[in-house]
């Protein structure tokens, strides 16, 4: 038993390094996508202190809108632009209808409000686009298909071109966001709001406007994530379960840290795949569904604020 748990998996890893590389790659790709969802959470949490449970469903909704528009005869690129517009409308109406009346309420109330938004969007999405899964339009969006086989370490490792594209696009988006935050006027305002709402207000930054911007940014991140996830599997409401996977990522990285979201995503993605592949068979596999939470929990016991989060200071 002890041998099976502590020795055998590592022997397997050493025996077949090509397989290990394959598993690590799969984990990295999954991790990148988790990180993208977590990024949406972090953006909103930093700027408005709202723990946005609806991020997952925004991913699905964005992807569904895109595919739904295309199915109804809108050209792919125009559909993409229209979807961006829809995400802006969504951000604007959420700010106007939900967030503005709830200013100054306790965190848990705002959290619950995003639950309400989640249900609302699920219902609306199913109502408009139907409940059955749809295939993502990949070739129309110039996403590559197929796979590259690489000979390495005495074996063959397969890289899906789509996964490589996903990793590249995610990297570009993070870079773009970093530039946006550091170099632009609105980005600076966003950082000011994240530091202190009151101080930001007192220097003339409009909180309402900032919230629209930040929810819209999160919507854009959701759209990119939706395209990537949708291309890997189908676009369906089952995807929203991945939003729950972003929670351990957040815990690991800390709620307020963008680099934390990325590092956390990679740790969770790789840890989960490696655990499932090498230790999963011992207990009848399927441990992917809860391993991420256990990893996060183990981290939490040592660092309650996450790897990169701000230290939690409690006063009476």
């Amino acid at each position: 038993m002890l041998y099976n748990v502590f020795v055998d998996p590592f022997v397997q890893m050493a025996d077949m390094p090509d397989l290990l590389v394959q598993v690590l790659w799969e984990g990295t790709v999954a991790g990148v996508l988790y990180a993208l969802i977590a990024l949406g959470f972090v953006l909103i949490f930093k700027a408005s202190g709202v723990f946005n449970f609806a991020q997952g469903i925004m991913v699905v909704f964005a992807a569904l809108t895109l595919v739904g528009l295309h199915e109804n005869g809108v050209p792919a690129l125009l559909a993409l632009v229209l979807t961006v517009g829809v995400m802006y409308a969504l951000a604007w109406s959420i700010e106007r209808v939900v967030l503005r009346p709830l200013v100054n309420q306790p965190d848990i109330i705002l959290f619950m409000a995003t639950f309400g938004i989640t249900y609302l969007i699920i219902g609306l999405g199913e109502f408009i686009f139907g409940g059955r899964p749809k295939a993502m339009i990949t070739s129309e969006l110039f996403l590559p298909r197929g796979a590259i086989d690489v000979q390495m370490l005495g074996g063959r490792v397969t890289f899906q071109k789509l996964d490589i594209a996903a990793a590249v696009i995610a990297g570009l988006m993070v870079a773009a966001l970093a530039v946006f935050f550091q170099r632009t006027r609105i980005g600076r305002a966003l950082r000011a709001v994240a530091d202190s709402h009151k101080a930001a207000l007192s220097v003339g930054i409009s909180l309402n406007q900032i919230w629209v911007v930040v929810w819209f940014t999160a919507g854009l991140v959701a759209l990119v994530t939706g395209i990537m996830w949708g291309a890997r599997s189908d676009v369906s409401f089952g995807l929203q379960i991945i939003a729950l996977k972003a929670l351990p990522v957040l815990i690991l990285g800390g709620f307020t840290s963008v680099p934390g979201a990325i590092v956390g995503g990679l740790i969770i993605g790789v840890g989960e795949k490696v655990g499932e592949f090498y230790w999963g068979p011992l207990v009848g596999s399927g441990i992917e569904s809860w391993l991420a939470y256990l990893i996060a929990l183990a981290f939490l016991l040592f660092r309650p604020q996450g790897l990169f989060g701000d230290k939690i200071i409690e006063r009476i």
Binding site: F115, G116, I117, I122, G123
Partner: peptide, 8 residues
């Protein structure tokens, strides 16, 4: 839709 709207 209704449950979501009710919650909000």
């Amino acid at each position: 839709i209704l449950v979501g709207a009710l919650i909000v």
